[in-house]
């Protein structure tokens, strides 16, 4: 069993190395709030300020049930910014570092444009971004991040809730199955 454990640890290590090999500027160490109030605040800000340019296509309008599209068409955006602003539904898990990167980006603007045309941001490779500084307070940036994290992984709460019960159930079952095995082993092997 000890060797078995060691093997598993080795494999876990290998996978860990694979996961950690992304190239990243050091991200700020933030804990993203999960309370409904903050998430709602984040949602309001996103709908008011971000949705003009960004779509959130995997989220739906509460009344029409249609996917949330951006205020401007991709063509217009392309003409205006040179790129189509990315969809935001998955953005909080689609960058190395996840939601921490989202927060870092929102608060990572530099006042000095340097060589950049539109805006300079420490957390974009190359240092330049086509999105101008939204000038968010830290609290607003955090609320937006909380909302986008929820948008990217909307099942997290229920998943963890059910998961704990599944683990408890499996744990009891495993212990019972082990005790059964021990008895059978004693009987069969003496």
């Amino acid at each position: 069993m000890a060797v078995l454990g060691a093997t598993l640890v080795l494999f876990a290590g290998l996978v860990g190395v694979a996961a950690a090999s992304e190239e990243l500027p050091p991200l700020p160490d933030v804990s993203i709030p999960t309370d409904a109030e903050t998430i709602e605040l984040g949602e309001r800000i996103v709908m008011a300020r971000c949705k003009t340019c960004h779509s959130l296509q995997y989220l739906r309008d509460e009344e029409t049930l249609q996917p949330l599209l951006s205020g401007i068409t991709p063509d217009t955006a392309k003409k205006q910014f040179g790129v189509v602003p990315p969809d935001l539904s998955l953005i909080a898990i689609a960058r190395p570092g996840g939601a921490a990167h989202t927060y870092a980006f929102l608060t990572g603007y530099e006042n000095d444009l340097g060589d950049c045309e539109k805006a300079a941001n420490r957390f974009i490779s190359g240092g330049c971004t086509a999105m101008v500084d939204p000038r968010l307070s830290d609290e607003d940036a955090l609320a937006i991040t909380a909302f986008l994290k929820e948008a990217a992984d909307p099942n997290e709460k229920i998943r963890v809730q059910i998961g704990i019960w599944v683990e408890i159930f499996l744990g009891i079952l495993t212990v019972m199955a082990y005790l059964v095995y021990r008895r059978i082993k004693k009987r069969e092997l003496g």
Partner: peptide
């Protein structure tokens, strides 16, 4: 019953680890 019981309990143990990933770290 010897191997079936052994496979069952050890299988359940591995499933616990498996479901820990599924529920708590699906990505």
């Amino acid at each position: 019953p010897l191997t079936t019981a052994k496979d069952a309990w050890f299988g359940l143990l591995v499933l616990m680890v498996f479901f820990a990933f599924v529920f708590f770290a699906p990505h």
